[in-house]
Write a protein that binds this DNA or RNA. Structure first.
Length: 525
RNA sequence: CGCGAGAUAGAGCAGCGGUAGCUCGUCGGGCUCAUAACCCGAAGGUCACAGGUUCGAUCCCUGUUCUCGCUACCA
């Protein structure tokens, strides 16, 4: 049964690009790339690059289109990045503008698990081919967990956007807000529904939404629903400071965006709204209009204040546009300006809204997230997790939802015959010895008493059990599995485990002690 | 095992040689146009741990622990 075979592979001579990579990354990107990205690239390059096999023996994948390459498929990190280019080509025949044009600034946004592929292997491929631009930066983020646990599509520990939109219609932007404000830019972060609620209610709507609303309400109450006159020559220091802040905000947000500090950039936008609130508070136009007489007397000051608040509001729309495009558009509609106002060049201007222009009635940009919604989402998350685990265990006939279980989910297996089942030689054995396999996190080497023989089985359970804790346990063994070498140790068979939804492993063993070597079989006639 | 990144108030982050700051939350007070914003004040941190360098360390050096990722194995 065990057959050792020679195989042939096609290699990419990564080693030949070591010098170039050293120059390009180690020297050239030292202070430019993020520490996590730079550090990993540097360590790879410093420790010496090897030619890397770009083909695999596998029955699925993209076949290698070369004579003599039957049965070979392309290594995923060879064909995936090429796929990015192909995908662009599918999308537009302007694809070369994105990938080949000299002055194109190409940026790869990825997660930390893919750093070396995007920074070393793919660029080396492009360099080897020639004619393609290299990434200017690869600002890899860390991971975002959900409620303290790693996202898992197969376990359905996830928030699906289509589901989200059913529960929170037209609220794309508040999710965008939370994801950006809480982005794992420097370390792993956690998405929790409570935090979602806090950030939406206390930051987005309380500060930004509230300012917008205050400006509109006051303008309608005190300025007849029209953009009041600025009276530029009557401005005071407060007014001039506010204008300065608007212009500063543009520069700050711009700088953050250029440096991929999206979290900080969003903060600056909110902070400008915060300054707007403060300005409004300090001027207190409502106090200046306590009585009609008083208002008449103060109308100029009121006009200046609200004029600037409204211009600030228009600026907020522009600054917000890269982060919350739907909201920016909504703001445009309320101000009755064309979408083109959102062009970045317009930021910092205080003549975005024309004097005497009538604006729409106040209407809230965001609504608060209720406690009940938070509870409901958390339950949903937990219930769906249980459901998907149950599906696996019971192997039900219920069709697996496409959204809930993408390709990697363990699908229901195809029907087999009794003969298929009977091919498997299942036997009971007892663990005599267990030890960690050197240089392997997950492997334990087990010696099993199979009654008539002692077997060595290598099993990937080291993360779950200490060797000393499992000695003496009876286990179910697939006894006729073809031997396989792992870390230099030949494994003869494998042991069966049940896995809980939480990932915990449980031995599958006889309820009472059985004879070692006894068969596990069906007993129907 | 090897390598990379991280560990700072309840949460999210900044600081990177002079005994800690910002946003949100919490508590108390003021104000009220508004989805309770804004102002004033308070509580809350042995800056993961242990050594070392220094007049002085969150910040530099060494070691350790923990988290995540990569490489290999995990049928």
């Amino acid at each position: 049964m065990p057959v050792k075979r020679k195989t042939k592979h096609w290699y990419f001579p990564l080693d030949k690009y070591e010098g170039w990579l050293k120059e390009w990354i180690v020297e050239g990107k030292k202070d430019e790339w993020k520490p996590n990205v730079y550090g990993q690239c540097k360590s790879w390059i410093d420790s010496g690059l090897q030619p890397r096999a770009m083909t695999r023996d596998s029955n699925w994948g993209v076949p290698v289109p070369l004579p003599g390459a039957e049965g070979k498929v392309l290594y995923v990190w060879f064909d995936a990045p090429i796929g990015y280019i192909s995908a662009t080509k599918e999308l537009t025949n302007q694809w070369a503008d994105y990938w080949c044009q000299e002055d194109t600034k190409l940026v790869h946004f990825i997660g930390k698990d893919n750093i070396v592929f995007h920074c070393i292997i793919f660029p080396a491929m492009l360099k080897a081919h020639g004619g393609f631009v290299l990434p200017e930066s690869v600002p890899a983020n860390e991971f975002l967990n959900i409620e303290g646990e790693k996202v898992s599509t197969s376990r359905n520990w996830a928030v699906w956007v289509d589901e989200y939109l059913k529960d929170f219609p037209d609220q794309q932007d508040v999710l965008r807000y939370v994801l950006c404000a809480n982005a794992p830019e420097t370390k792993d972060n956690d998405f929790t529904w409570k935090d979602f609620q806090d950030r939406v209610n206390n930051e987005l709507s309380a500060i930004l939404g509230n300012f917008e609303n205050r400006a509109f309400v006051l303008m309608h109450k005190l300025c007849k629903g029209r953009v009041p006159t600025l009276h530029a020559d009557a401005m005071n220091d407060m007014d001039r400071t506010l204008i300065q802040e608007i212009q500063n905000a543009k520069v700050k947000v711009e700088t953050c965006l250029e440096n991929y500090k999206f979290r900080d950039g969003l903060y600056e936008v909110i902070d400008l709204a915060r300054k707007g609130n403060k300005y409004l508070q300090e001027n207190a136009p409502w106090s200046l209009a306590k009585t009609p007489e008083l208002q008449l007397e103060n109308q100029q000051r009121i006009d200046i204040c609200l004029h600037l608040c409204l211009q600030l509001n228009a600026n907020l729309a522009i600054l917000l546009n890269p982060f919350l495009p739907f909201t920016a558009n909504k703001m445009c509609k309320k101000m009755k300006v064309v979408e083109r106002m959102l062009d970045w060049e317009n930021a910092g201007r205080i003549d975005l809204l024309k004097t005497n222009y009538p604006l729409l009635a106040p209407e809230l940009l965001f609504r608060k997230i209720e406690d009940t919604e938070v509870v409901a989402q958390m339950e949903k998350l937990k219930n769906n997790l249980v459901k998907s685990a149950a599906q696996k265990m019971e192997n039900t006939t219920e069709p697996v939802k496409a959204e809930a279980a993408p390709a990697e989910a363990p699908a229901k297996k195809a029907e087999i015959t009794y003969d298929d089942f009977a091919k498997i030689d299942l036997r009971v054995g007892t663990i005599l010895k267990a030890e960690k396999v050197e240089k392997a996190d997950k492997l334990l080497k087990l010696e099993l008493d199979m009654g008539t023989e002692i077997r060595t089985v290598v099993s990937g359970i080291a993360m779950h059990f200490k060797p000393e804790d499992i000695v003496g346990k009876q286990v179910t063994v697939v006894a006729n599995l073809a031997p396989r070498k792992m870390r230099g140790i030949e494994s003869n068979g494998m042991i069966l485990m049940a896995q809980n939804a939480d990932g915990r492993l449980i031995f599958v063993s006889p309820l009472e002690t059985a004879d070692n070597g006894s068969e596990v079989k069906s007993v129907i006639g």
